[in-house]
Design a binder for these strands. Structure first.
Lengths: 338, 338
DNA sequence: TTGTTTTGCACAATCGATTGTGCAACAATG
DNA sequence: CATTGTTGCACAATCGATTGTGCAAAACAA
């Protein structure tokens, strides 16, 4: 039985009917095409028996539908994107779409190449998560008539659903200020922002929320309080080490802009004597289950993945992606009242 | 310019040539089909200009090739599978395959349904990672002539590449024994195994390695030292709480069988006074970057994802998947010498 | 019985790209 | 000039499923 994948023609011959009849039965159009109940049963039995699977290339070609929905994400390396993948698959399956998740490594060239490939497979919808260049992606989708939404990082050509980064950063910053202990040395008596990229919208909004809250609660913000050193653990580690040496110790508080950056921070902190760490209060924008049980407490902001993607699907569902609105979803604060 | 996706026929008309000429140019067969250099250049220019993308449904149908390689994984929720996704995508791209990763939630029905759908899209290869029923998946692939390899959990119908769970568990168990402090109370002076499923091969091998080492170094193993309570954090939390109450405290050491189970364990331990935790040595089969910086040390076994998948690709590359061998890859110990 | 409807299905065109083949136009050779 | 080769491309069949249409046979009506 190790035959080639069989076609509806093979099945048709076995059943003694025509291919169009088989097609009608298998695609549930038997009633509409007035196929006798006995014929339907027979074809279904044979299809089952021979483990027949439709060729979706052929089907998709004929119907100009692929049944595919794509999502691009930057990386698979943290909980936020893991949760996005999981929720995406669930929501897609609920709608009888077949989900494809691909990571594009924050590489603009790979990003657009990936999208073009997805389009060549004729995906019908695309969720564009954390894209470095959402507008290029949007244009490509538009040229193919493919519904699309930006998530996490917004674009200007399609509706975007993003975390309320400004509000989240304000809350986290305020909590860091309230829960940290003042320090005598002026430069150390500050909260420092570490990680992310200043070219990236989410980081900009978080920096803004951070700066406003610091200004309101502690006076001015100094330029050197903000180091959007990038999205790699190593870079954050280097950045923190430099800060530590500059200040001659840890500062009053740290606002870490991603769990990846937090990884680097943790690597540096682990090497310090525990006593030093007690004086520094740490917060992280994004959540990780283990980070909540580190040897020092970490205040965390958890993005509402279900709400973000739920809204994104609603938008592709009703085709309201073209009006380029910005929808903001409040994240969840993973720290109780003082 | 918001036209429908254009076809090679549209492009042919624009260029004043036939569709077959366009096809030859775009698929790099211009030389073989003796297309004039000037014609090639013109077609390429127009293709570029109009951002033409080939319809891979049509192309795949005609050539009986899709260019797709699939991988199924159980979940997106831990580092092992995240790293698998990332490495899979990289290795696939190196080979000019287009990668599709789908999670099947450890649900046998979803698993086989997913594989059938992937087959209906005519994927050409499949990496079957951590499948609950690898042999059913293998049979489906075989029926379609699709190359496939099992990874992480082995099957009997295709070659499997798995972590050397037995060896890894032995190393981890020995380290737990050597690094932990003996306890007076007999039942607490033991290492306990928590998490995973005893129906699952990896867990069986780890339990075996654990039991052998315990027997060799500490005498007999008691049945109640092993609780393969499942793959959810909640279950591990419940299991550990029960153990704690049964023993009247934490045991000498814990062998946690996955980072997910470790999440539950950590939730329980966080609620305990720190002094109690100091006496319990913890090890985890699987690695997480944050888990290495918890408030208590965790010995970890990190699977060699690159080697696992590298080997898997080698096997699909040379088509040696049918001999149903078992290839074991040693994991990496994330703890130094004593 | 004859005419009309309904039932049940087959036929053939089609989706868009690929590929074996055929054939002008031109060049090279004798 | 006649013959043979080469170049450059078009034509048409094909992949497997879908779907508009047509047409016997059966069922029903008159």
């Amino acid at each position: 039985m190790r035959k080639r994948a069989s076609t509806i023609y093979d099945l048709a011959e076995l059943a003694g009917v025509s291919a169009s009849t088989v097609s009608a039965v298998l695609s549930g159009k038997a009633k509409a095409r007035r196929i006798a109940a006995a014929t339907v049963a027979n074809v279904q039995r044979l299809a089952e028996l021979h483990k027949f699977t439709l060729n979706r290339q052929a089907s998709g070609l004929r119907r100009s539908r692929s049944g595919l929905i794509g999502m691009i994400i930057p990386m698979h390396d943290n909980r936020f994107f893991s949760e996005m993948s999981r929720a995406f698959e669930r929501l897609a399956r609920e709608r009888h779409w077949y989900p494809i998740v691909v990571s594009t490594l924050r590489d603009p060239a790979l990003e657009i190449e990936t999208v073009n490939t997805l389009l060549s497979y004729r995906i019908e919808q695309l969720i564009v998560t954390g894209a470095t260049d959402p507008d290029s992606v949007g244009r490509a989708c538009r040229a193919h008539g493919v519904a699309h939404v930006n998530v996490d990082l917004p674009g200007t050509t399609a509706t975007s659903v993003v975390s309320d980064n400004h509000w989240g950063a304000q809350q986290l910053t305020r909590a860091l200020i309230e829960r940290s202990k003042p320090m005598k040395q002026r430069a150390r008596n500050r909260i420092y922002f570490v990680g992310g990229l200043s070219t990236d919208y989410a980081t900009q909004r978080r920096v803004a929320g951070f700066a406003e809250t610091v200004t309101a609660d502690m006076g001015a913000v100094h330029q050197e309080q903000i180091d959007a050193c990038g999205y790699e653990a190593d870079l954050a580690e280097v950045s923190l080490r430099a800060l530590y040496e500059r200040l001659g110790g840890l500062p009053r508080g740290l606002f870490i802009n991603s769990t990846i950056a937090l990884e680097g921070v943790v690597r540096f902190l682990k090497a310090l004597p525990p006593s030093q760490m007690g004086a520094c209060t740490i917060g992280c924008y994004d959540w990780d289950p283990f980070a909540s049980a580190l040897s020092f407490p970490v205040l965390m902001v958890r993005q509402d993945v279900e709400a973000l993607l739920g809204e994104a699907f609603r938008i592709v569902d009703n085709g309201t992606f073209a009006d380029a609105r910005l929808v903001e979803i409040k994240p969840q604060l993973m720290f109780g009242p003082l």
